[in-house]
Structures are given as C-alpha cells and as structure tokens.
Amino acid sequence: MSEGIKKFLYVNRKAPHGTIYALEALEVVLIGAAFEQDVSLAFLDDGVFQLVKGWDTKELGSKNFAPTYMALGDYDVSKIYVEKESLEERGLSEDDLMELTYEDEDDDWAEKSSIHIVSREEMARLMAANDVILSF
C-alpha cells in the first residue's frame, strides 16, 4: 500500500428511511471513492436494515436508493462488513441481504461477493484496525 493512503471505515448504524443518515452515508462513500483511499463499509445495529433486499419506496414517495448500493462495486468499494449478531437480533440472515458484488481486476474480472459477515468481536477489531472512522 503506497504512502498517503489511509484506511477509511464508514460505520452505518441507522435504518434506511427513518433518518437521512443512510442516504447521506452512501453519497459520501461514492464521493469519497474519487480520492482512491482504502475504503470499507460496516453495517451494524439498525444499519443492517439498509442492506435488506426488496425495498419498494413508491408508496412512500421517497427515492429508492437500494439500487445505488449495487453501484458500490463499480466505485471500487468491495469490502462490506455486516455484523452477525445485529442480523440475528433482528431476525435476519445473510439470505435476506442484497447481493453486492465487485469485479476482481486481479482475477480476470471475476465477479465476487463484497459482503462479509463478521462477529461482534471481529467488528470491534475491524474498527480498531482502520485509520479513520466516519459514523452515520
């Protein structure tokens, strides 16, 4: 890793529609991706609700930004960590989540999953291992 590149972790702890945090976080991540830093995303607590598939916001009258999570791979954001305990507490499992993928340049552009399910303890270590934490 070359000098000047920092490890950024975006921590998402809010559900998608109740506040503007989720959409704002997503936009900041996409804008920040232009700076070519080492970016990871963490989803814990109510943040795991952001990645649940099958949103339909038509009746709500707000923008359906679920498809935008699918663009993260295009923006070279390929490390998405989701906390297992947060999922379980909410009656969810990995099968309930959107399939987020990226194409691995070093492996003949093979399509790979960006989602990693981690334990609470692994999540704590992940936070400690990053240089900058941005909370939403």
């Binding site: 921590v11 702890r13 809010k14 945090y21 936070m127 990053n130 240089d131 900058v132 934490i133 909370s135 939403f136």
Partner: peptide, 15 residues
C-alpha cells in the same frame, strides 16, 4: 475533552 481526542489515535462517534 480536547486532551482526550489528542491522546487517542482516533475517535468513533456512536450517533
């Protein structure tokens, strides 16, 4: 508070 911020490597806000 400022001293704590400078004495730690990084901060994390639990919003």
């Amino acid at each position: 508070f400022v001293d704590l911020v400078t004495s730690c490597d990084k901060t994390e806000s639990w919003l």
